[in-house]
Computed example of a mutant assay.
Amino acid sequence: MELPVNPPVEPMLAKSIPSLPTAPGMSYEPKWDGFRCIVFRDGDEVELASRGGKTLTRYFPEVVEQVRAQLPERCVVDGEIIVIRRDTGEPRLDFEMLGQRIHPAASRVKMLAEHTPASFVAFDLLALGDQALTGEGYAKRRARLVEALAEVRPPMHVTPVTTDVDTARDWFERFEGAGLDGVIAKPAEGLYEPGKRTMYKIKHSRTADTVVAGFRWHKEGPIVGSLLLGLYDDEGRLHHVGVAASFTRERRAELVQELEQYREDVVDHPWNWAGQAPGSAAESIESLPAEGGTRLPGGVSRWTGKKDLSFVPLRPELVVEVGYDAMEGDRFRHTAQFKRWRPDRDPRSCTYEQLDRPIRFDVESVLAGRP
C-alpha cells in the first residue's frame, strides 16, 4: 500500500467541554457511537484501522466490500463503523450489537456480517489520489470529502454538518433518541493533527441515585477497585447497571472501612451470577441461565467473556448518587462517576423511572440528511 498518508495513523481526537463553542466558521456534526475507523484504500488493497492502531479489516468484510465498491480508488477517510438496529421501532444505533462483531471465529464473523451488517459514516478526508490533505483546514477537507463521496449510498454515508449553532443545539437534544452520543465541534481552519485533541465534544451529563450491592477488589491490593451499582425494575428486581471506579488510592482504602458494615449478614443476595459463591470467578455469559431469553437481573455482559467477575456482595442498603452520560439498553453506557452518598434515600426508591429517557428518533433520517 503506497498512499500519501500510510498506516498507522492515530486519529485526531476531541476534548470534552460542557457546552457548544461558538466561533466564526465553527462546524458541528453528530457524535456517532461506534468504532472509530480510518479507511485506507489503494486499489484493491483496503485496511480498516482502529483508534488504537489495530486492524478491524477481518471483522467487517462487508465494509471492506463497500469501500472497494464506493470510495475513491486511492483515499484515506476518517469515520465511524456503526451498526443500526431496526427491530425495535425506530432504527437506532446499537453499540452492543457492534461489539459482538469482534470475534475470533471467521465463521461467526461471516454470519454476523450477514445478519447485523455494519455501516460506515465518513467525516474527514486525509488523502485523495496522490495528495495529502492533513495540512489543509477542516473546511477545505470537508468540501473535498463531500465532492469525493457525492455518489455514495447506504451503507456508506457522509455525516451531516451544520455551521448554525441553534441547529447544533437541536441535534444535541434530538439525536440522542437515535443512539447518537452528542455533538462534535470543529474549527474551520483546524488542521488534521493525529493524536491531538483539537476538536471539541459535547456529551450529555446526568445523575441517578443507585444502590451499591457489591464491590470488586483493586488489582493492586486490598483496596476497593469499583462499586457495583443497581436499579430496581417495576417488579422489584435489582439489576446490575454499571460501576463507579474513579477514586484516588487513598479514597479506595477508605471505602474498605466504609463498606465493611454492609458485608455482614448478607442473605439471598439478588445477584447470583451463575451461582457463584462470594470470591469465586463467575462463568462466562454463555453459561448463564436466562428468563425468557434475556439476562437475569444482575447478569453479566457478553463483553466480559471469561473474565473473572467475582465480587464482594453487600447488603443492598447503601445509596449513592452517580453521574452518567447515557444508557446502553438497561445499563450505563460508560463507567459512572461517584458524586455523593445519599443516606436520605430508600434503596427501594432507586428505580429506572428516575432516568431521563430520550425520545426515540430514526437514525436513518440523520444519515440521509433529513434531521
Rank of each mutant, 00 (worst) to 15 (best):
M1C: 04
L3Q: 00
L3M: 04
E10S: 11
E10I: 13
P11I: 13
D33H: 11
F40E: 02
R51C: 04
G52C: 00
G52S: 15
F60L: 10
P61R: 10
V64A: 09
E65R: 15
V67W: 03
V67A: 12
A69R: 15
E73V: 14
E73R: 13
D78P: 03
D78F: 10
V83H: 14
D87T: 07
T88V: 09
L93I: 11
L93Y: 02
E96Q: 14
L98S: 08
R101G: 13
I102L: 15
H103E: 06
H103F: 12
P104T: 13
A106H: 03
R108S: 08
K110Q: 14
A113V: 09
E114G: 09
A122G: 13
F123V: 08
D124Q: 08
L125Q: 09
L126C: 14
L126Y: 12
A127G: 14
A127K: 15
D130M: 01
A148G: 07
E151A: 11
E151K: 15
P155A: 08
P160C: 07
V161K: 01
V161A: 12
A168C: 11
R169P: 04
F175K: 01
F175H: 07
E176R: 15
E176K: 05
G177E: 07
L180W: 06
P187I: 00
A188E: 13
P194S: 10
K196M: 12
R197K: 12
S205D: 10
A208R: 05
V211S: 03
V212I: 14
G214T: 05
F215S: 00
F215H: 05
H218I: 07
L229R: 02
L231C: 01
E235Q: 14
L238C: 04
G242F: 02
V243W: 02
V243D: 06
F247S: 12
T248R: 06
L259H: 07
E264P: 00
H269S: 04
Q276G: 14
A277R: 12
P278E: 13
P278C: 12
A281P: 02
A281E: 13
E283M: 08
E283A: 08
S284M: 00
S284Y: 01
I285N: 00
S287V: 10
A290Y: 08
G293I: 11
R295T: 10
G299Q: 09
K306F: 03
K306Y: 11
K307F: 07
K307C: 02
L314Y: 11
E317H: 03
L318A: 02
V319C: 03
V320D: 05
E321V: 08
G329T: 04
R333D: 01
Q337Y: 09
R340F: 05
W341E: 06
R342V: 13
D344I: 04
D344F: 09
R345A: 15
R348K: 15
I359D: 05
V363Y: 00
V363E: 01
S365T: 09
V366D: 03
P371H: 06
